[in-house]
Write a protein that binds this DNA or RNA. Structure first.
Length: 467
DNA sequence: CGACGGGACGC
DNA sequence: CGACGGGACGC
């Protein structure tokens, strides 16, 4: 790529997988024009227009590398079929063929909307859907079962409508689900499975000709849903924020208002007006929502309280081309300002947070020290605690609240479907302190056994991941 | 007692 | 239809 550090020229093209776009455009399109129109969708690592060796003229083939697959997918969905320069042909946008791999599968027909996950055997298809719907609209969920006994094998598929949703799920879901892109089903089986209309994939889509991106979602005829119909161009501008500590409406507003374009922010309350620990935020444009999610998901506010921010469907129609152009303009300005500007911590520093009420969400016989800041998620684990709950596991947020107070907590891990969990610490002494203080104690009526965890098994003979 | 991992769809 | 370049930190 033209602006790549030389070192990464060829090695990082497919890291992470499906983060690079293959763009067919007019020969007149320049790298700068591509960068301008694609930078709205994420962090561009490189843009390259393929040119003839001798004449130096563009061949109309371009590559755009993003730092994340979800950004590349989103850009593909939004930009495919767009006219970049008046009077030129609409561009075509696909996820680029992996360069390292020798096999030459046709990526245009590649399934990018179905993920493969590992789940507790107790999960129903409804549980699966409930777990993964926060990342996007789900077409269907399937659990692999023993065909005679009907018992779950602990494996499942989740089909989204759009590649960006599948990518967001893979990037953001709990690691214990081991979410990866599902391998396409075998050719023979694909024909009449999920479409009563029985249209071959790809053909119908390509016949759309110069109206590639114009045909709307076929709401009236859900039975005839070609798999490639995700390219109709919309993505949620709405975010759901979850917080463990009780935050006020004003605090949340101030935080999300740091990203330009916020037009709605409301703390969710129950029937008694108490905070439910969630807030809905909507931005005026896609770019702002993507950016806010990227920057605020995992952000600690106040320190020690890690926020979770995810997309939610707002069910709106976002197909107005005028609105999208305005969005791209604003988002481009905003992003270049922030990305080239001061560091994240400065940008995100809120104007001083008032005391966060401890809101009796944790009842315990322990005299808890105050909340402490979490260690960064990528910290090296120096000690793990193994915790057994009786009679049933405590929620993640409560555990984080309790176990972070001895310092250096990296993350809480609950084993799905079991009554045990792991607490990962960046400092051994902190872990020991937590163990000493919390072993045998009762939190919200749940008794905890707290022990040093056995070291995790060496992972060695694992087959390489398929994506 | 109470343990993380693992992996594929009736063609 | 429409698939992969150029150039090189500083020990």
């Amino acid at each position: 790529m033209e602006d790549y550090p030389a070192k990464q020229g060829t090695e990082n093209l497919d890291d992470p997988p499906n983060s690079r776009l293959f763009v067919v455009a007019s020969r007149s399109v320049t790298e700068d024009e591509l960068r301008d129109s694609f930078s709205v969708f994420g962090d561009i690592q490189g843009v390259w227009v393929v040119k003839d060796k001798q004449t130096k003229e563009s061949k109309g083939i371009c590559y755009v590398k993003f730092s994340k697959s979800s950004q590349a997918c989103l850009a593909m969905e939004e930009m495919h079929g767009k006219v970049l320069v008046d009077g030129t042909k609409p561009i075509k946008v696909f996820i680029a063929q992996s360069r390292s791999s020798t096999r030459h599968r046709d990526v245009e027909d590649e399934e990018l909307t179905r993920i493969f996950v590992m789940i507790p055997k107790t999960f129903s298809e409804e549980d699966l859907k409930d777990t993964f719907k926060e990342y996007g609209d789900i077409e269907y969920c399937v659990i692999i079962k023993n065909k005679f006994t009907g018992e779950s094998k602990g494996l499942g598929y989740v089909r989204y409508y759009k590649p960006s949703q599948a990518a967001v799920a893979i990037e953001n879901c709990d690691k214990t689900y081991r979410a990866i892109l599902a391998e396409p089903r075998t050719k023979a089986a694909t024909t009449e499975e999920y479409s009563s209309g029985g249209t071959a994939r790809g053909g119908e889509y390509m016949n759309a000709g110069d109206n590639m991106n114009q045909y709307a979602f076929p709401m009236a005829d859900p039975g005839n849903y070609p798999v490639m119909d995700y390219r109709s161009g919309d993505f949620t501008r709405c975010l759901m924020m979850s917080t463990r500590a009780a935050l006020t409406q004003e605090q949340i507003f101030a935080l999300f208002d740091l990203i330009p374009g916020m037009e709605y922010c409301e703390l969710q309350r129950d029937a008694y007006g108490m905070s439910k620990g969630h807030a809905l935020i909507r931005y005026s444009n896609l770019g702002s929502a993507v950016y806010a999610k990227d920057k605020l998901n995992g952000f600690e506010y106040p320190p020690g309280n890690r926020l979770a921010v995810n997309f939610v469907d707002d069910g709106e129609d976002r197909s107005s081309p005028v609105g999208r152009m305005a969005m791209q303009f604003v988002a481009t300005q905003m992003m270049s300002a922030v990305w080239n500007g001061p560091s994240t911590s400065q940008v995100m520093k809120p104007p001083g947070y008032p005391p966060v009420s401890q809101m009796s969400r944790v009842q315990t016989d322990v005299n808890l020290p105050p909340l402490k800041k979490l260690a960064p998620p990528d910290s090296k684990s120096k000690e793990r605690l193994f915790v057994v709950f009786s009679p049933s596991p405590l929620p993640m947020d409560v555990l984080e609240d309790v176990f972070c107070r001895y310092g250096s907590l990296i993350e809480v891990h609950l084993v799905p479907g079991r009554k045990v969990g792991y607490m990962k610490y960046a400092d051994k002494q902190c872990a020991d302190d937590a163990l000493a203080a919390l072993h045998g104690r009762v939190v919200n009526g749940v008794k905890m056994k707290v022990m040093l965890a056995d070291p995790p098994r060496e992972e060695s003979h694992k087959r390489p991941r398929t994506y």
